[in-house]
C-alpha cells in the first residue's frame, strides 16, 4: 500500500507546522524580554553585579540535552523511513535524556544556591534562576508532548504517514536546545 503524506496549504500537517513556529516565536519573545531585562539592568550599574559561578553540571546538562536532541532527530528520521521499532528505541532514549536534563537542572539549582547565590541574594542570581526556570518550564511542557508521542509510539499508532505530532514535537525540542545554548552563552560570557 502506498500512501502520500498530506503536506499542502490547508492540510492539518501544514497548519501544525505553522502553529508550532508561531508558538516558538512567542516563547522567543518571552525569553528576549527576560534577557534584555538582564542586559539592561547590568548595563545600568555594573558595580553591584555579582558574577555567579556556574556549576560544572550545567555543561554536562548541556551535553545531555544535545544528545537527547540527536536521539529525537534520529528517531524522527527512522519513523520517516518506516522503521517503527527502531523509532521507539531512539525516541525513548530522547525522552529519558530529556528527563535526565531536568534532574540535572535541579541539581544545578541546588549547587548555585549552595554557593550562596539564592534567589533573593542578588539580581544576577535572580536572573539566572528566572531564565533557567522559564527554560525548565518549557522543557516540562515539551516533555509532555514527547511523552504523548511515546505513549502512542509504544502502541504503534504512529507511522510514516502519521508523524506530524512527532515532527512538531522534535522541532520544538530542537528549539529548546538552541534556547539553552543561547542561555549558556549568556551565563558564561555575559553574566
Amino acid at each position: 500500500m502506498i500512501t502520500e503524506i498530506e503536506h499542502h496549504r490547508g492540510g492539518a500537517r501544514s497548519a501544525a507546522f505553522i502553529g508550532i513556529v508561531v508558538l516558538m516565536c512567542a516563547s522567543a519573545m518571552t525569553f528576549s524580554a527576560l534577557v534584555s531585562a538582564m542586559v539592561v539592568r547590568r548595563g545600568l550599574n555594573a558595580t553591584d553585579w555579582h558574577r555567579i559561578s556556574l556549576p560544572h553540571i550545567l555543561w554536562w546538562n548541556t551535553g545531555i540535552l544535545l544528545l537527547s536532541s540527536v536521539a529525537i532527530d534520529l528517531a524522527r528520521r527512522l519513523l520517516r523511513r518506516g522503521k517503527r521499532t527502531e523509532f521507539n528505541y531512539a525516541w525513548t532514549a530522547g525522552t529519558v535524556l530529556g528527563t535526565l536534563f531536568l534532574i540535572g537542572q535541579v541539581v544545578a539549582w541546588n549547587q548555585v544556591a549552595g554557593d550562596g547565590f539564592r534567589l533573593q541574594h542578588s539580581l544576577s542570581a535572580a536572573f539566572f534562576y528566572v531564565l533557567t526556570w522559564a527554560h525548565a518550564a518549557h522543557v516540562v511542557g515539551a516533555l509532555g508532548a514527547v511523552g504523548y508521542v511515546e505513549y502512542r509510539a509504544v502502541r504503534y499508532q504512529l507511522g510514516p504517514a502519521n508523524r506530524t505530532v512527532v515532527d512538531v514535537s522534535a522541532m520544538f525540542w530542537h528549539f529548546l536546545d538552541v534556547l539553552w545554548l543561547g542561555l549558556m552563552a549568556l551565563f558564561a560570557f555575559w553574566s
Binding site: 500500500m1 502506498i2 500512501t3 492539518a12 518506516g82 517503527r84 504503534y156 499508532q157 504517514a161 508523524r163
Partner: peptide, 27 residues
Amino acid sequence: LDAPANLSLFETASLSVERQYLTGLRI
C-alpha cells in the same frame, strides 16, 4: 512509502479502513 513492509505487528491484520487510520496509513 511502502508502508506494509514495516508493519510487522499488523502483518496478519487485514488493512481495513479503520486499521489504516490506526496505523497512520491514512490521515
